[in-house]
Design a protein around this nucleic acid. Structure first.
Length: 292
DNA sequence: AAGGGATGCAACCGCGTTCGC
DNA sequence: GGCGAACGCGGTTGCATCCCT
């Protein structure tokens, strides 16, 4: 065996010692314990020092996506869904960038959400997730509906509080539905202008007439930490301003869409969020009104 | 009850970037 | 400035679980 061969063999031996696949409780404990004592970083040496037969990469991933104390687990909330849609429309698949604006959520989690939920619906609609058709469907149907539901769920608590804040903040931010404004340090939440000149912004005639029967428990489920400092802290004022802007009559419903008829005709706005927001048949029939 | 497809998510991989020597 | 190691990101895979027949 030549020198190169020996090196390869040694590398293989090292590889054989390394564990892969799901982490055990013992491994998790070792990693948490080590990081709590010595901090994170230098992942390869950390893995060795902690006695873990894992690559540094694997340790880093396990820590960031699962073991970190501030990782927020559980269902993606309405608000988070709305934010993901908006930020994705702005930045595309920059998951880590998007994740920075969803406290406690990891890029991996957001990526998985996008792939399993959003792309699934694009597939069902037989259109590309990056197509104008799909983006418009998101923008003019899904996002306003999410915003409506968020307000319906939280009108007595969060949004009313935030609305006050937003109102005062909007002055400082020179916020209105036709401008952009800052979210934390960088995202510019653009309030869409309904296809520029060809489609004008219009109001929904009965935008607040639904979802009021949604059980309050939904809210408790979606916002398990609401009311806590932590939760309040993660509600960015500007995010809520953005949500408010999506809600008619100041929102940006497509003028050609007959939402009143749709709401009378479907049940897709009530019940479980994720499924009912995307009643494919309803959306598809509405899409015909886009005159593509 | 079983088995096969669908789904969701944790984990891995490859590659580009950053850092430190 | 060059080089290797470490880091971070987006894409992909593998597997456990769920659901339907």
């Amino acid at each position: 065996m030549n020198v190169k061969g020996e090196e390869d063999h040694e590398e293989m031996m090292k590889m054989e010692e390394l564990r892969r696949g799901p982490w055990t409780v013992e491994e998790d404990f070792s990693l948490i314990n080590y990081i709590s004592l010595h901090g994170e970083g230098r992942w390869n040496s950390l893995a060795r020092a902690a006695g873990l037969k894992r690559t540094g990469k694997s340790c880093r991933l396990r820590w960031l996506n699962y073991l970190r104390p501030d990782v927020r687990r559980g269902n993606i909330t309405l608000e988070e869904q709305l934010l993901i849609l908006e930020l994705h429309s702005r930045w595309g698949n920059s998951w880590s960038k998007i994740a920075q604006h969803l406290p406690g959520r990891t890029d991996n989690e957001i990526k998985n959400y996008w792939r399993t939920r959003v792309q699934k619906h694009a597939k069902q609609l037989k259109c590309d997730v990056n197509s104008k058709k799909f983006k418009d469907t998101m923008r003019y149907l899904w996002m306003p509906r999410l915003a409506e539901r968020i307000q319906a769920h939280s009108s007595a608590t969060i949004v009313s509080n935030i609305a006050n804040i937003t109102e005062s903040a909007s002055t400082a931010l020179n916020y209105n539905t036709n401008t952009t404004h800052n979210i934390t340090e960088s995202p510019q939440v653009t309030i869409p202008q309904a296809q520029a000149t060809s489609n004008t912004i219009c109001s929904s005639s009965n935008a607040t007439s639904f979802s009021s029967d949604s059980p309050i428990s939904d809210f408790a489920h979606d916002y398990p930490n609401h009311g806590t400092d932590d939760f309040q802290a993660h509600i960015d004022t500007d995010h809520l301003g953005f949500i408010e802007s999506l809600i008619s009559p100041s929102g940006y419903y497509h003028q050609d869409l007959n939402f009143q008829a749709m709401e009378q005709n479907t049940e897709w706005m009530s019940g479980d969020l994720a499924d009912n927001l995307w009643n494919v048949e309803d959306i598809w029939s509405l899409q015909q009104q886009f005159n593509y």
